[in-house]
Amino acid sequence: MNSQTTSAARSSAAPLQPELTKRKLLVLAWLDRLAPVLAALAVIGVWELICRVFALPNYLLPSPSAIVTSAFALDPGIWLTHTWATLRVSLGGYALAIIIAIPLAVLLANSRLMSRTLYPMLVVIQSTPIVGVAPIIVVLMGAGEMPRIFITFLITFFPIVVSTVTGLMSTPEELKELSRSLGASKAREIRNIQLPFAVPYIFSALRISITLAIIGAVVAEFVAAEKGLGFFIAFSTSFLRIPQAFAALIVLVTLSLLLFQVIALVQRWLFPWSLPKESR
């Protein structure tokens, strides 16, 4: 009786054949889990097929197999050098953004004067197309890694500021009153109440910003660099080595996804309470 009701509850179809229904459900569950992978494989398959059937030249659209071949044709040391260069610029700019954005957000959230004067300036900086400013920054700051890190910083720090300010402002008014009624200092209020309340907001910004950091590094490398994956793509396309450029793109996407996951893991390790209950 009990098993009948459960299987009936799980599937409205064919209650007379519970065994078959169970197998069907199992297959459906697997399909559901594999769906993203299967979809991706299908896209790659169609891509390969189109390239072969229409015999597209590599400089127009390289086939997936051509991309993989070109990736392995290159010395792994070269890949490593370029990837490492991009990673350094990305993480450098990202770290600088965090170091500057979070104290700035604390200032903005706690001082009306600061938020009235600094916020409009920040919006202007954010509204300036970074690709347009990048060459100017390179001219101003000269060659080397610093201008690239600065460009990455510019593109990453704004989301962190905005999100952290929102988080700090989300602190319940009652807790601020509790803090004041205890005679605790503003610094303690910020450290013990406001900042922890902002943690979920900070991390959602950090996840967005880490992918922006990769974009920033690539933009900077397009403008002025002698190494890095951005430079390598520009270099490869100028010699019409399109499969190689595609391979570099795949490395970039992988890097971006990996870093995104690392941020998510850091949040889960250090601040599990800041995640929604079901994803802890």
């Binding site: 319940p172 009652e174 807790l175 009153e177 509790l178 009624s181 109440i193 922890p196 943690v199 601040f271 309470w273 800041s274």
Partner: peptide, 13 residues
């Protein structure tokens, strides 16, 4: 003085 607020406002962490 001790204060109890309208919302419990506990610290989730």
């Amino acid at each position: 003085i001790g204060i109890v607020f309208q919302r419990p406002t506990l610290l989730p962490w």
